[in-house]
Design a protein around this nucleic acid. Structure first.
Length: 682
RNA sequence: GGCGAGAUAGCUCAGGUGGUUAGAGCGCAGCAUUCAUAAUGCUGAGGUCGUGAGUUCAAGUCUCACUCUCGCUACCA
């Protein structure tokens, strides 16, 4: 493999409407940081780029809800996340932001170039506009009467009642969901990127060419999309918050976030280059640059299909060499979730464990979800700290330093004569270094971190086998050699752990009284000169007590409980209806006679229900939580005068009433004691 | 249902182009050892490699079917 002249490494731009948790870190930022630190140690030319993604609808909605400007929101989270990365030792060359003027200009120019080259498909359409809110309405924000079934709460994209997919214009009496007013039809123009054409022309072929060097999950995901055929994708939106579309007569149109965000990598590189007096174009337009995108799996399509399409369409840019996307990290067996507050937040961790940043980095790296989703547990955090960092690595360093102090007054002793075993040990150290390079360059970080730990194991074994403490009386010369080599190993450790444990590496360099060393020295036998004075022995890591683990797990559960309580019963009340409206509903007590799962569906169960009036068939979405056996014979509430509706080819004549809690758990509304079939519920 | 990824020791995971007794770390058991935060080193137990067929002299490794898990998507709510 040819070594590229320079690297451009990007990490996904975090969306600036919330804080970061360890899932984000394990997915993209820590692997990227490890990779970049390694490249820097090797003296390679690398630009490490990240920043906040600050546009898009969710931010505007949040701003509206909190009654502040979108800029206030993004300012807040930009600052929090920027600091979070710094605290974790994730050292971007620049942490930029997409609300910066330079980004607006870069994205704008990019669009303009494609526009002028005629790359876009231009479509003019009529869309609904809410005059009171002064904005165009997304399909989902329009409600009206369904033309095919007459349901009056159908959405602009689909009728929930009959399942017909709709366009907003088909709705009878459309109403804006934002203001409740009647929206006006207005002409609006949008631009589309012809992904379908690119698929034919080069994109699919390009993806295929990476079958062997891209990760299986990444390649597979791309193929899945290509198999389903790509479609033109709109690159603009009618919205106020974002990068204005740089074409005449396009008031209140902005670039769609997914178009604008990846260009953020480019503008960030420009900002960095300006600051450092570098040429940004070399990093983006020179074939001798290797571009690597680190992302989570949710971002694969954008980085492997859409962004490359944009770059290629522009014409001057290189395409990524690799997109090593990770899968997701779970926490204590459950999916990380911001809304359920099931997460370890970066800012909280940093506050509570300022001296354990590297332990987190180590635990995460050892558990990176590289092939499949993986789990983070506090118990594992403790085990890895106590059994690996403390017991293996910290212990070896301490042993080497204590022995040096004891026998040589903290001076690195001179090598007298190397035995075969010494040579084998040195060879092994060099092999570790080489293995490490191989793994890191192939993005196998969890293996890499284990191999780095092997350097500590090697040291422990070396001391155990040579037993310098029982030798000093008889053969001080031998002890000198052994301790010299042990200290060389310690110095090697300070090099090879730098990508994973930068704070520890720094600490270890202080112990050894040395400055930062080049990667190439790792595994060498002459890193430290004889006579060099090392510092007093200290511990590299502290143990984590059981109590700490228990506290953290308890804290997690506590936070989740609180969140759940907060959210309990949040479903807002519907509009008032008249008593007459209510009496039109006919709800009865029915008894389920038969039940079977509807084949080829996940949730649907077909029920035969005796309503007292008749026996009828009802399809209900309960199969995920109930088995046919447990519902059979059960008395339930059933709405009997609903229009029948065909679901999966079965005519459903009514609806079983269920209560659904915040977790989505369903409960039957059954009479407290058995009662007459057909009894009226009122 | 469609598409994708995964299923290998108690746990977390490695196992290019098929080839002798299937590996690592942690955990567990025994032994050794004391320089070290009872840390370390050695040895060992433990696996029908999801299930069932097939290709082959030979399959964890290739083919097909099936089961289960996760994700996207559809349907449903």
């Amino acid at each position: 493999m040819k070594e590229p002249g320079r690297y451009l490494v990007t990490a996904a731009l975090p969306y600036a409407n919330g804080p970061l948790h360890i899932g984000h870190i394990a997915g993209a930022y820590l692997p990227a940081d490890i990779y970049v630190r390694y490249l820097r140690l090797k003296g390679r030319d690398v630009a490490f780029i990240c920043g906040s993604d600050e546009h898009g609808v969710p931010i505007t909605l949040r701003a509206r809800k909190e009654g502040i400007s979108p800029q206030k929101i993004v300012d807040k989270y930009h600052a929090i996340n920027k600091k979070g990365f710094e605290d974790l030792g994730i050292e971007f060359d620049i942490y930029h932001r997409t609300s910066a003027p330079l980004h607006h200009k870069t994205a704008s120019d990019f669009f303009r170039k494609l526009y002028e080259d005629g790359e876009f498909i231009e479509k003019e359409e009529e869309q609904f506009f809410d005059e009171q809110e002064n904005q165009f309405l997304a399909d989902r924000y329009i409600v009206g009467t369904c033309p095919s079934c007459g349901y009056d709460q159908a959405y602009g994209d689909q009728c929930e009642q009959c399942g017909t997919s709709l366009s907003p214009k088909e709705l009878i009496n459309p109403v804006s969901a934002l203001s409740g007013n009647k929206p006006q039809l207005r002409k609006t123009k949008h631009w589309y990127l012809p992904l379908d054409r690119y698929q034919e022309e080069w994109l699919e072929e390009w993806i295929d060419s990476h079958q062997n060097d891209w990760k299986a999950n990444v390649y597979g995901q791309c193929k899945s999309w290509l198999n389903q055929k790509l479609h033109p994708r709109a690159v603009t939106r009618d919205l106020e918050w974002g990068v204005p579309v740089p074409v005449e007569d396009t008031d209140s149109k902005v670039l769609y976030v997914w178009f604008d965000a990846p260009i953020g990598y480019i503008s960030a590189t420009r900002a960095w280059a300006e600051e450092k007096g570098k040429d940004w174009e070399k990093y983006w337009k020179d074939e001798d640059t290797s571009m690597i995108h680190f992302i989570g799996k949710d971002n694969i399509v954008f980085h492997c299909l859409i962004f490359p399409s944009m770059l290629k369409a522009h014409g001057e840019y290189i395409l990524p060499d690799n997109v090593p996307a990770n899968e997701f990290l779970n926490l204590e067996g459950d999916k990380l979730s911001t809304s359920r507050n099931w997460a370890v937040w970066v800012n909280e961790f940093v506050e509570q464990f300022p001296d354990k940043i590297d332990v987190l980095r180590y635990t995460l790296a050892a558990n990176f979800p590289e092939q499949k989703d993986n789990d983070f547990t506090w118990k594992d955090f403790q085990n890895r700290n106590n059994n690996e960092l403390v017991a293996v690595m910290g212990n070896f360093i301490n042993r080497a330093l204590v022995l040096t102090k004891k026998y040589f007054n903290r001076q690195v002793p001179e090598v007298k004569e190397l035995t075969d075993y010494d040579r084998v040990t040195l060879e092994r150290a060099r092999a570790i270094k080489n293995d490490l390079e191989d793994r890191i360059e192939h993005y196998k970080f969890r293996e890499a971190v284990k191999i780095a730990m092997d350097m500590g194991r090697l040291g422990n074994k070396y001391l155990a086998d040579t037993e310098p403490w029982s030798l000093y009386e008889k053969d001080p010369g031998r002890v000198a050699t052994v301790l010299n080599l042990s200290l060389q190993l310690a110095a090697s450790i300070s090099i090879v752990i730098e990508p994973f444990l930068p704070f520890t590496a720094e600490k270890l360099r202080k112990f050894l009284n040395i400055s930062k060393l080049d990667w190439g020295l790792a595994g060498q036998s002459n890193i430290l000169e004889a006579g060099h004075e090392v510092n007093k022995p200290q511990h590299l890591f502290q143990k984590v007590e059981d109590q700490v683990v228990e506290q953290q797990v308890e804290k997690l559960q506590e936070a989740r409980r609180k969140k759940e309580q907060q959210e309990r019963g949040v479903e807002p009340a519907k509009e008032n209806i008249s008593f007459d409206d209510f009496t039109r509903l006919d709800i009865r007590v029915g008894e389920i006679l038969e039940a079977e799962k509807v084949p080829k569906t996940r949730k649907l169960m077909k029920l035969k229900v005796d309503t007292g009036l008749d026996t009828r068939t009802v399809v209900a979405g309960i199969a995920e939580q109930f088995s046919p056996e447990e519902v059979r014979g059960r008395q339930v509430s059933i709405a009997v005068n609903l229009d029948p509706r065909r679901i999966k080819g079965i005519e459903s004549q009514g609806m079983i009433l269920m209560a659904e809690d915040a977790e989505g758990r369903l409960t039957f509304l059954s009479p407290g004691t058995k009662t007459q079939r057909g009894a009226v519920v009122k």
